[in-house]
Amino acid sequence: MATSDKDMLVQFLLRMGDNSLILGHRVSEWCGHAPVLEEDIALANTALDLIGQTQFWLGYAAEVMDGDKTADDVAFLRDVWNFRNILLVELPNGDFGQTLMRQFLFDAYQSILLPRLSKSSDPRVAEIAEKASKECAYHVERSADTVVGLGDGTEESHARMQAALDRLWPYVGEMFASDDIDAAMAAAGIAPDPASLRSEYDALVGKVMAEATLTIPQSDFAHKGGRSGKTHTEHLGHLLTQMQWLQRAYPGASW
C-alpha cells in the first residue's frame, strides 16, 4: 500500500472510530443521571457497544499507522486537532430528549453506512462493520421508538424534541460532505461515498419524524470541520480533559 493510500485509510478509520468513541463517551456521561433506571441502563449499554466498536476501528487504525501503537494510544494520546469525528457527536448532551434525538440522527446514518461497509473490499473493515451493524440495528430501533414516543407525546416532550431537532439539524449535513478521502475510499471499494447515502437517510429520518409529529427544518446549512479536522467545537477539548485525564496525569499508566 502506498503511503498516501495508507494515510487515507487511517483517516477513514479515525473518522469511524472517533465518531464511536466521542459519542460513546458522551452517552456514558448519563450513567447514574438518566430519568429512570431502565433508561440509565439502556444508555450505558449503548455507550458500551460504541466503545467496543471504537476498539476495533481504532485498533485497526493503530495497526495501519507505523509503529506499535494501540487503540488506547490513539484514543488517549491525541489532542483535539487530531480527532476526526463529526461535530454532532461532540455536542453536549443537553436534556434527555436532545441526547436521544442525537442518538437517532447518528444511528440512522450508521444503519445505512455499516451494512454497505460490511461489503468493503478491505476484509478488516468488512468484519468490523458486520459486527457493529448488528448492534446498530438494535440501537436505531430503540432511538427511533424513543423519538416517536417523546415527539408524539405530551406538549412538553413534543416541544423539547422539536427544539432538539432544530438545534441538531444543522449538524446533520456534515455526515454527507464528501472530500478527497471519501473519494479515495470509494475508488478503492473500501467505503461508499457518504453523499450517496443522503437520499436513503432523508427517507428514513423523514418517516420517523413524521411519525413523531416533528418538523424537519428547511435550511440545509451545515456546520462542518470535525471530519476533516479543520475546526472542532469548543466542546471537544473539554470532553477530552475528562476522557484523557488519567493518561495526561499519569502518562503510560495501565490498568
Binding site: E38, E39, I41, A42, N45, T46, D49, Y138, E141, R142
Partner: peptide, 12 residues
Amino acid sequence: MSQFGSTPCKAQ
C-alpha cells in the same frame, strides 16, 4: 420494560 438489561446480551 427495557430493550437493555444487566448485561449487553439481555433485555428486561
